[in-house]
């Protein structure tokens, strides 16, 4: 019989709970939806390796009972690429944030997408640098406030789902923490896709984004995200002025094509009649 407890706790390092995230932070919701999405696949939990950079969102793997690599800021995708190419049998999952993935790690992001490496990337986009105290990030909406924008940000933000789609990823979706069912389904599809899968989750950082932008309670942020989300199909029939300030959610790309680690494996086999080096090392040990 299953243990009588919350259904997602079995995946977590219980001795580390409660986790460090602030009350109402979206990171914990994204963890749940990841496990729900995983349960919809045939993937073995023990075959998952999680990789992250630096940020509140990047702390997620530290709570999960699987192998994990907590790396340097912005470089999670580089470490994950090495891991996947070295051992293509692993299911490699990256947890990242808007700052980690799109500021310091922006170039890694577009090139990982371009090469369509088989990774599943969950990008928790809270539109701010949470961990370091509320600085403006490349996804902060124009006009939003942060510690580095006391008069409101003047810049146009990146649309991450569109950016990563244009860069060549084979699966891209955007949902929010107020769409946990749809989000779980997108994570399931991302895990199943043999190629670069990018799931952007618009999430709440009540402590910094909320406080700086007149949404003081976790609930007001949650409500704001829910009320301002519009499904992609509906959004396609609306004009720019109607879409101002809205969060477009749905599937952006689902076009499977040949992925990097399979390409490399094939290249090595074709040219050396041997498997990948790391694999042959294991074989010699047997």
């Amino acid at each position: 019989m299953a243990k009588q407890e919350n259904p997602y706790k079995k995946y977590l390092r219980e001795d580390r709970l409660p986790h460090i995230f602030c009350p109402g932070c979206g990171n914990g919701i994204v963890m749940n939806t990841f496990f729900k999405g995983l349960e919809g696949t045939d993937i073995d939990f023990d075959n998952i390796a999680m990789v992250s950079g630096i940020g509140c969102s990047s702390r997620v793997p530290g709570y999960v009972k699987c192998d994990s690599l907590h790396t340097t800021h912005g470089r999670a995708l580089s470490f994950a690429t090495g891991l996947k190419v070295g051992n293509p049998d692993l299911d490699v999952v990256v947890f990242t944030g808007d700052g980690d993935a799109a500021s310091i790690g922006g170039n890694h992001l577009i090139h990982a997408a371009r090469r369509n490496i088989n990774l599943t990337v969950i990008c928790i986009n809270n539109n701010i640098y949470g961990m370091t105290g509320g600085q403006i990030s490349p996804t902060s909406p124009k006009g939003s406030f942060g510690t580095t924008a006391p008069y409101g940000s003047r810049d146009l933000p990146f649309d991450l789902a569109e950016l990563v789609s244009a860069a060549g990823a084979s699966y891209v979706a955007r949902w929010t923490t107020t769409h946990p069912i749809q989000l779980s389904k997108a994570i399931q599809k991302g895990l199943e896709n043999e190629g670069f899968s990018f799931i952007e989750v618009v999430s709440q950082c009540p402590t910094y984004f909320g406080r700086k932008n007149k949404m003081k309670t976790p609930l007001s942020m949650h409500q704001y995200i829910k009320e301002n989300s519009i499904n992609k199909r509906r959004a396609e029939k609306m004009d720019e002025s109607e879409l101002e300030g809205k969060i477009i959610v749905g599937e952006f790309t689902n076009k499977p094509h040949k992925e990097l680690s399979a390409n490399i494996k094939e290249l090595v086999e074709e040219n050396s009649n041997k498997g990948l080096a790391i694999k042959s090392a294991f074989e010699e040990l047997d």
């Binding site: 706790k9 709970l17 995230f21 749940n32 069912i181």
Partner: peptide, 16 residues
């Protein structure tokens, strides 16, 4: 329906 379990950021809810 389990929606509260899925939406609780702190894994604090169990619906038997």
């Amino acid at each position: 329906c389990g929606l509260c379990e899925l939406s609780c950021p702190d894994q604090a809810i169990y619906v038997k």
